[in-house]
């Protein structure tokens, strides 16, 4: 990649180290009640791999490289889009009782997508 900022190994290690610390601290503050959306949300975040997949596919010059690059973009795009969709859906479900004062027995009317499997 003709990137302006060619990284040496040490700069990369600094980035890794700081990102790991930041991640550990930020994630450590997420309450246990949100651990499932946190996990699907971090699924979504690693969906950024699709950008790497696109780079690889654009630079592919043989059929094999094109096939694998296509596979990478396909998986990465699915990872990002699916991770976003489920996380967004889950987070929208978390409500306090204050949000709906004294109507605890009324929201049975909500539509639920309960699929029997």
């Amino acid at each position: 990649m003709n990137f302006d900022i060619a990284m040496t190994g040490f700069v990369a290690l600094y980035i890794f180290m700081l990102a790991a610390f930041a991640g550990w601290v930020i994630i450590g503050n997420v309450p246990a009640i949100l651990h499932t959306p946190l996990m699907s949300g971090s699924n979504f975040v690693h969906g950024i791999v699709v950008v790497g997949g696109l780079f690889a596919l654009f630079n592919a010059s043989t059929v094999l490289e094109q096939a694998i690059g296509f596979f990478a973009v396909l998986l990465g795009a699915g990872n990002a889009a699916g991770g976003y969709a489920v996380t967004d859906r889950m987070l929208a479900m978390f409500k306090t009782s204050d949000a709906k004062p004294k109507t605890a027995h009324h929201h049975g009317a909500r539509v639920h997508h309960l699929k029997k499997s």
């Binding site: 990649m1 990137f3 900022i5 060619a6 990284m7 990369a12 980035i15 890794f16 990102a19 790991a20 610390f21 930041a22 991640g23 550990w24 930020i26 994630i27 946190l38 996990m39 971090s42 699924n43 975040v45 690693h46 950024i48 791999v49 950008v51 790497g52 780079f55």
Partner: peptide, 15 residues
């Protein structure tokens, strides 16, 4: 050589 992937990946790794 893509810092965005490095940071996102590492944060998820730590999580």
């Amino acid at each position: 050589q893509n810092p965005a992937l490095m940071i996102a990946g590492m944060v998820v790794g730590a999580a």
